[in-house]
Design a protein around this nucleic acid. Structure first.
Lengths: 144, 144
DNA sequence: TTGAAAGTGAGAATCACTATCATCTAGCCG
DNA sequence: CGGCTAGATGATAGTGATTCTCACTTTCAA
């Protein structure tokens, strides 16, 4: 079998999760990535750790943190702010925000955003905006 | 059995900071509240602790946390999310957002908001929005 | 003035990571 | 194949922020 060469535009990705270029796909990472890929709602690092340990009992907590952080850097998970516990959600890279259900924890993405425009902030406050965080809390359709 | 009560806003406020109803004003609290009332920029609990200790050497760290949390519950300080270190800002109760300078840490309030309307979220996602968090990061006029 | 409730300080405990390091291995090369 | 090496791993110690506990003190309405 001819050695598969990685084409220059081959996107490093695993089950829809974008990975940094030339990431090694170890069994440990695969275990954590699988859990995140299957996940519908928000999760904490410890959630993942405990679930992953059921299949890989020797998996280390640091590896979970390293893997989550890797995905955060490449845009496939995002930390959820404003919640009591520090949690993450799987998400598509690109600008969007989250609808977080306070009842069941489900997280839905929305591209709706109406954050004040950088131009307006510039004009009104002389503030040069670089980015923003917006999470919306409430009750999802299934819970209400 | 109802006792005569203080009117709601008799003394539930100190130097512009709103306090929960019938809060006792102890010297320790006053020390912490004074620091917050004078503050222009964001601060951490430990910042306050160290500064307050210069005037009240026996003040406990837990008291600082308790006081900050008290103000958070009544809407006079708000935790800043998305920043590296966990920080708070003094703010007026009511809906508004923050412009956080990544260079000097100054925090400015703005009433500008354009978060998707509850009606739209309801229509598009069946999501009943209850609240949201929006902090905008960038460079303030003085730093740019 | 007084007593119950609220507040306090000190330190232990907890929580969510982060650093360290000896060891291991995935993926490239021949 | 098998060897090489940068990158990955697990165990565990360390860290920084916050919360808990509890004996003691203080505030303030009655």
């Amino acid at each position: 079998m001819t050695r598969p060469r990685r084409p220059p535009d081959d996107r490093d990705e695993y089950r829809g999760l974008r990975l940094p270029h030339r990431t090694r796909l170890t069994p440990q990472r695969r275990a954590v990535l699988d859990l995140i890929a299957d996940r519908e709602d928000s999760f904490t690092a410890v959630d993942l750790f405990q679930e992953a340990r059921r299949r890989k009992p020797k998996l280390g907590l640091a590896t979970v943190y390293r893997t989550v952080d890797m995905l955060r850097r490449s845009g496939s998970v995002r930390p959820l702010v404003g919640d009591a516990r520090p949690a993450y959600v799987r998400c598509e890279p690109g600008h969007h925000h989250h609808l977080v259900c306070l009842s069941c924890g489900a997280v839905e993405e929305t591209e709706l955003c109406g954050a004040p425009s950088p131009a307006e902030l510039r004009k009104r406050y002389g503030f040069r905006a670089e980015g923003h965080e917006l999470d919306i809390y409430g009750t999802c359709s299934r819970c209400s």
